[in-house]
Structure formats: C-alpha cells, structure tokens
Design a protein around this nucleic acid. Sequence first.
DNA 1: CTTTACTGTAACAAAAATAATTACAGATAA
DNA 2: TTATCTGTAATTATTTTTGTTACAGTAAAG
Lengths: 135, 135
Amino acid sequence: MTARFDIAMHILTLLASAEGEYVQSDYIAGSMNINPVIVRKEISHLRNAGLVDTREGKNGGSALAKAAAKIRLSDVYEVVRGDSLLGRNKNKPNPDCAVGKQIGKHLEKLHADAEQMFVQGLKKTTLADFVKMFG
Amino acid sequence: MTARFDIAMHILTLLASAEGEYVQSDYIAGSMNINPVIVRKEISHLRNAGLVDTREGKNGGSALAKAAAKIRLSDVYEVVRGDSLLGRNKNKPNPDCAVGKQIGKHLEKLHADAEQMFVQGLKKTTLADFVKMFG
DNA sequence: CTTTACTGTAACAAAAATAATTACAGATAA
DNA sequence: TTATCTGTAATTATTTTTGTTACAGTAAAG
C-alpha cells in the first residue's frame, strides 16, 4: 500500500486531539511535513466516508464528524484501501496451462479471505483507543 | 504490495503439481506470461527460504524442497514481504508537534500488531490446501 | 573434451504508481 | 470587499516495480 493509511491516521489523530476545534489543512500538513494539497485530498476521502466534517472559507478547517470512539480503524482502512493486501493481481496467465487457467480465481479468493481476517482485526480498535496511547 | 506473492504462489503451485519432477523456469514463465528472469529471481528467494530446491545445468529446474503440506502460506508471505501491510512508513513528522513527535512509534506498533494477526491467518492454510482447490 | 541446455545475477531500461506542486476557482468570516 | 480558507484539476517529479539484456557458471550427454 501507499502511505495513505498513516496520513489518514495522522489527520484523524490531530482532529481527535483538537476536541471539536476546526483544524486547518496547513497546520496538519505542517505536523506531517507534507504538502497541504495531499492533506486536503485525504480529508476529502475521509469526509466522503462520513468521518470528518469540513468548513470552507475563512477560519475554516476540519473536525471529526463523530466521536473518536465510534471510528474503527477498519473504517479508516476502507477509506484508503487500494490494491489487495497480497498484491496487485493483474496477471494474465497462460490459459493453455491447467494451472494458469484457474489460478486467478483461486488467488482472488485467497486475497479476499486474508483481507477479511485482517479487517476483522482492525475493527477491534477505535481511533479513541489509538489516541489514548499518546501521553 | 507488489505482484510477488501471486508469482510465488504460481511457481509453488506448478512445482506441487509436478510432483517431484524438476520444472524449468522457462516453462513456469510461460504459464504466467512473464519474463523467465523474474521467475528465477523469485525462485532464488524461495530457495533461500528453504522452500524449493534447484538443479543447475542441463536438465535443470526446480522442485519443492519439502511436502506441500509442510509449506504454510505464511511462509510464502514472509518470503515476499516488503513494506508493512498498512503502508510504507518513511514519514518524518514535525518533532515540534506533540502528535507528530510520537505518532511514528504508535503507527509502527499498529502496523506490527495488524500484520501479526494477518500472518496468523495465513498460517492456517498450506500449499497443499491451496493446490487441492484445482480441479 | 566439447557442445548444448539449463540457472544465476548484475546492470540497465521501461513502465507504472505515488507524491508533490502549481494554479486558480469557490466559500465565508470579518 | 478583502483576507483567509478549502476544493480540485492539471502537471511534473520522484520512487517503485517490472522487464530486458547480457553474460558467466554448471552439469548432462554425446
């Protein structure tokens, strides 16, 4: 995967710490040393998923759209999810080979099963749990 | 991740199907429609992990180094494992920010915990189980 | 021996994915 | 009505991944 999960978590952690205050993308970008546009893009995804609320215009910014205890890490994962955890499967195996012919669907199932277990694990932790770790 | 897990699985499935016969990298590459050098590279990793045995020279090729039932999918995953499942974490957050300062280590732990669960899941399936799915 | 048919691997090139930047439109508080 | 925000498209730069070429090393078979 990309760095998106970590970026999203960083954003959400800052919002959780701000306790309702609307935080600006420039501030967030400064905390992570990345470009504000990347922050806004990720916020846009988080917003589409109903995790954050944004105010435009002067004194604008973002805040959590619901309690940190209601945001599961699996929710975050879903937002940034890209390729399958076990790899990008765009192979075109040889259909004349008995194995090549059907391995695609078996690998797909394997990917799906493995990912589901993974997501189950992430469901157990909330943003609030994560933020609690900060001293 | 990359396509390496699927490539490794494809290789191992072919070897398992060959039941001890030594299979050549060109044949394997043909089954997957990829370059033989990539196959040899992956075989090299699988060999280092003790999963396959290779013979050089004429009539050479590779075979499983142990029974398919003794090869867990987690073993395969370990071989191809690259970045953490939740992303490549090479961020250098702002140390002047209370959150930025410590989020790195907390994310690392999160990555590690999540991955461990994932690997636990993969441990339950062996190459033999996977190959059984092929009709 | 010598030829032939393999594997191993380094070095390089191409392609794809990701991240960063620029530029500007739209929103809203003051 | 200006100053300060966000949204987003378009572009470029960077990094990662994949593929290729080239050639050395190994061993079977004649």
